[in-house]
Amino acid sequence: MSLSVRRRSLTAALLASTTCLGLLTACGFSSETGTGTGSSGSKASAGGGSFPVALTNAWGRTEVKEKPVRVATVSDGDTAIALALGLVPVITPDVEDGDQVAEYKQRAITKLGEKKLKTYDDTDGTDYEAIAAEEPDVILGVNTWDMDTDYAKLSPIAPVVTFADKKQSDTLTWQERLKTAAKALGLTEKADAVIAANEKTLKDAAAAHPEFQGKTYTYSVVHPEQITYMSYADQDPGVFEQLGLVKHPRSKDYSANKNGVSLENLDELESDVLLMTYPFGDEGLLSASELETNKLFRSLDVVKNKHFAVVPSENTLASAIAYPDALSAPWVVENLTPILAKAVAGK
């Protein structure tokens, strides 16, 4: 899987900066709400909620007895949730993509008064000892694929906030993940503000680009083992559908567990707009030049009519599109809309 697909930034629309709200404002940060808990564990500003809070999850029941101050995360997406809610986690997994922190995430960290986050090496999975050493009040795990393994080892450390059904590891939207975490943190009002601000950013972007309305799209990633149909029916649509695009009817034939497109079936990528990305370069199943000179690929109407575009992966944009989180939408809007506009126009 993809773009550091073991994490949900991890493995993230789109408008020029003149119509996009500023990243942090759009994500609910302001001089009033942008305070948070730094690694020292100082309290965040209140955002509503009463305690204790009890949440049922796929592995049991979590009870948060008092408003948490020290929050640990087990994925990039969970880190984004904490930052969007004005909290600096006491510890997080190290960043993907060769120590590069996504620009939008670094802006949020800086806004909250930190230069960088305290991290643990998750090459071999979640570091339970490192998390325990930070004595968190709560552990956020609503954006992870590893909770089946992690829950039994994390729950003795602190209450674990995660999804109610194992299937939701792939199907929950970032808004649903944010709301789940916010309930446990007593920050429901702040979560609502984050969602509303993101929706306004996207509404403004859609209004600026009426040509997007009703266009079908396919988003595909070249992984080492396959070409992956990322815009499958149950995938979080992220920014695309809020901008007015719709998934191709063929998307219903694909899912998280059935998402490979063979070279013999490249016509499955046909759509009004096709976006491809090559995060693994020459280590992918095939390179950009190999795919884009493929006879069947070149015969697709979407390619012949120049409604095809490549999404850059070097700046984490491709990952942010595929795995949207609570922080990324305004930044994605700012960076991808020009690419999408050219593809829709056939330029």
Score class of each variant (00 low, 15 high):
266 L>A: 08
282 D>Y: 06
272 D>L: 03
24 L>I: 15
104 Y>N: 10
321 I>G: 01
14 L>C: 11
309 A>Y: 05
327 L>T: 00
339 I>L: 09
101 V>I: 15
164 A>P: 11
240 F>R: 04
144 T>S: 13
3 L>T: 10
161 V>L: 10
115 K>D: 15
193 A>G: 15
83 L>P: 01
303 V>C: 11
251 S>L: 03
280 F>V: 10
186 G>A: 03
96 E>K: 03
83 L>R: 02
238 G>Q: 01
322 A>T: 02
281 G>A: 13
334 E>A: 04
209 H>E: 09
38 G>E: 09
76 D>A: 11
133 A>I: 05
87 L>F: 04
267 D>A: 08
236 D>R: 00
272 D>C: 08
92 T>V: 12
254 Y>M: 04
195 I>F: 01
204 D>S: 00
141 G>C: 08
331 W>S: 06
321 I>L: 12
277 T>K: 04
20 C>E: 10
20 C>D: 07
297 F>H: 14
258 K>W: 06
66 E>L: 05
23 L>E: 14
255 S>E: 04
83 L>Q: 05
134 E>Q: 14
167 K>C: 09
253 D>Q: 09
276 M>T: 14
334 E>Y: 06
346 G>C: 06
242 Q>H: 01
146 D>V: 06
34 G>Q: 10
319 S>R: 00
333 V>Q: 01
125 G>V: 04
53 V>R: 00
202 L>E: 01
290 E>P: 13
337 T>Q: 06
240 F>D: 06
7 R>P: 09
119 T>I: 13
106 Q>K: 13
293 T>R: 13
236 D>Q: 05
168 Q>D: 15
209 H>D: 10
305 N>I: 06
301 D>R: 01
231 S>C: 09
82 A>Y: 00
283 E>N: 12
302 V>P: 01
313 S>T: 11
277 T>S: 15
79 T>Y: 02
153 K>P: 08
253 D>C: 08
270 E>K: 02
163 F>S: 05
105 K>Q: 12
43 K>S: 15
73 T>E: 07
304 K>M: 12
33 T>R: 11
152 A>S: 14
194 V>D: 09
233 A>N: 10
298 R>Y: 11
44 A>I: 09
210 P>L: 07
275 L>Y: 01
262 S>F: 09
148 D>E: 13
266 L>E: 12
63 E>Q: 03
59 W>L: 13
268 E>W: 05
26 A>C: 12
231 S>G: 09
89 P>N: 04
101 V>C: 14
210 P>S: 05
119 T>W: 07
33 T>K: 10
255 S>F: 00
111 K>S: 15
251 S>N: 00
226 Q>D: 10
37 T>W: 07
188 T>S: 14
208 A>S: 11
64 V>D: 02
128 Y>K: 00
299 S>F: 10
264 E>T: 14
342 K>F: 09
23 L>M: 14
275 L>C: 09
201 T>E: 07
347 K>T: 15
101 V>L: 13
346 G>S: 09
131 I>N: 01
203 K>S: 02
81 I>D: 05
